[in-house]
Design a binder for these strands. Structure first.
Lengths: 333, 333
DNA sequence: CTGAAAGCGCTTACAG
DNA sequence: CTGAAAGCGCTTACAG
């Protein structure tokens, strides 16, 4: 393991105490900002702390206090802008409460997800934020949920006692998309689930299909249970190019919608003239590109603050919270 | 703080030892996979571990062993796809060596960067991977670098002893862009630095300006020292729209290049006919959009594996490593 | 092959 | 206002 230069040893609280001529208790009090220390003593200690460059050892601290002031988050893929934005929002909310956020990125890899799910408890975090990639993984570790820190699951509803969940009304959002396509006079739509069988995909496609039937929109359905994100766009575009009777496309998420949009453009199709596209998530990229993406927007910041609220509460006050979505008309429909 | 249900207490190694009728030493040996334990004993211990759902406390472990098997990474902004891809690559390389990656996201906020830089040492990580947002922040904590875990700085060269650095040949890449524009017959170019004065911006614009002078390409220069990413695209686009004599644009990075590309399209300009655009980074998005982005590609996976290599080495073997870049012609030039 | 015991670096009652 | 001492949950020489 990496050895350090000459100055091998890290300076500890004992070094500070000795140098300042006080006990470690006093150093600790000063660092904790307790009032009960004489000003002169405080000054002296702080000076030594600064001079020696002393930093408290987080592990010793956490061990002794039984709380680490840190949260661990498990996400499917930081490379997907929706998760990146969600992480940024959650980190914001967490740090305003004095929590560090430690991140575990599953990279759309099931094995990695399970492994992280197993090791996250070792971290002894004050709370766990879990954005599931697959439903299977949740089941595998559900028993672990009984003891340990509060857990909040994002984007999937769980009935496990003591586990909170924050998700959005996926079904309602999907219905909005179906009605929108119909109001535009579109006749036949394709709906695809997000890759890797993300749990939310189910209610999105179900909601869309159901509403489509009600309003008289024909639906072709394709699920990408096992397709990796990088291929999903090409596969969906291929389906659309092959069946030109389809004039509307409801993607499982914005990332996918955007990939398909450009694939179609490259193949010479016009959006929205030849085919209308609607995404889901409301990522910033959707409004950055030309044409701007029509989508169903999730309230990312509200999700983040709700997650942190829930984490801070006693576990028996955990609930399943479902937040509303908003339809955003862009230029792709 | 969040209290848990009835089963308050976390099961510890003592609980396991008692239940299995052995000492904690034996439990520890079994968990560490040491051979010196009788098969029957091992079985019994493992059964109890499973039944009780025991998980080792990482803090106690790290404290005792003096190593945490974890790395901490500080990055400017996970929302920028380049950093997202870099993180994913680094995490991959790290986990293949058995390291956890803990992430601190500065969110393009200087205050947050400094604060993270101060607390990262508390984590007692086995190594620190630091992608600086500003040069100032580095200076503020340089003294801390003398003791503590190995540090690898990404994307900026540092001369601090014992600190390794991995970056790419930004200047050479910028020169490629200038020559490319010239070979296309472009006459007047705009070059902008990445927002927030990212350290790399300096050599990119310097290299571009210098080479442009050599090959006879006129240059208008604009730096975005204080502009947040979300505005930078609009500001740059505005400059380009105002001065129509400019027929080439070298953005400091792909993220910015893409934003400007679409801004220009919305304003009715044609790319590359009216204006050619070249980015820097080689993010996946650049090849996903239409038109595909011309760019200078950084070898992300090589950067990641080099970083991990360096972290694993004794500090006195740390070096400044500069990796090559590759010019990628897309459809925006 | 197994156990008793020290000690990692802190914080926090408890005395004084 | 300050210090001596216990203890958080592990791992690891050291004995046996």
């Amino acid at each position: 393991m990496a050895v350090h230069l000459g100055n091998a040893k890290r300076v500890g609280i004992i070094d500070v105490a000795r140098e300042a001529g006080v006990s470690t208790a006093t150093v600790s009090f000063v660092l904790a900002g307790k009032e009960q220390v004489a000003d002169a003593t405080r000054e002296r200690v702080l000076e030594v702390v600064r001079r020696l460059g002393y930093q408290r050892n987080r592990h010793a601290r956490a061990l002794r206090r039984g709380a680490s002031r840190s949260l661990s988050a498990l996400v499917p893929d930081v490379t997907n802008p929706f998760y990146a934005e969600l992480i940024a929002a959650i980190e914001n909310a967490a740090s305003s409460q004095g929590w560090m956020l430690s991140l575990m990125n599953c990279q759309l890899d099931r094995a990695r997800e399970v492994s992280y799910l197993n090791t996250v408890f070792d971290e002894v975090p004050d709370g766990i934020i879990y954005v599931p990639m697959t439903s299977d993984a949740v089941l595998e570790v559900e028993s672990r949920f009984d003891s340990g820190p509060p857990i909040v699951i994002v984007d999937e509803i769980t009935s496990h006692a003591g586990v909170g969940s924050v998700s959005v009304d996926n079904e309602a959002g999907a219905r909005m998309a179906a009605r929108h396509f119909r109001s535009l006079g579109r006749r036949r739509a394709l709906v695809t689930g997000p890759p890797q069988g993300l749990p939310t995909s189910q209610s999105r496609s179900t909601g869309f299909i159901d509403e489509a039937a009600k309003v008289g929109l024909e639906v072709a359905h394709a699920a990408f249970g096992e397709v990796r994100t990088s291929d999903a766009g090409a596969v969906a575009a291929d389906l659309l190019l092959r069946d030109r009777s389809i004039d509307a496309y409801f993607a499982g998420n914005d990332f996918l919608a955007i990939q398909v949009l450009f694939e179609l453009q490259r193949a010479g199709l016009r959006v929205p003239e030849d085919i209308a596209i609607c995404g889901f998530d409301g990522i910033a990229w959707g409004q950055m590109i030309t044409p701007r993406l029509t989508t169903v927007r999730q309230p990312i910041h509200l999700i983040a603050s709700t997650v942190i609220d829930l984490i801070s509460k006693p576990v028996d006050e955990h609930h399943e919270i479902v937040l509303p979505v908003e339809f955003v008309r862009g230029q792709t429909t």
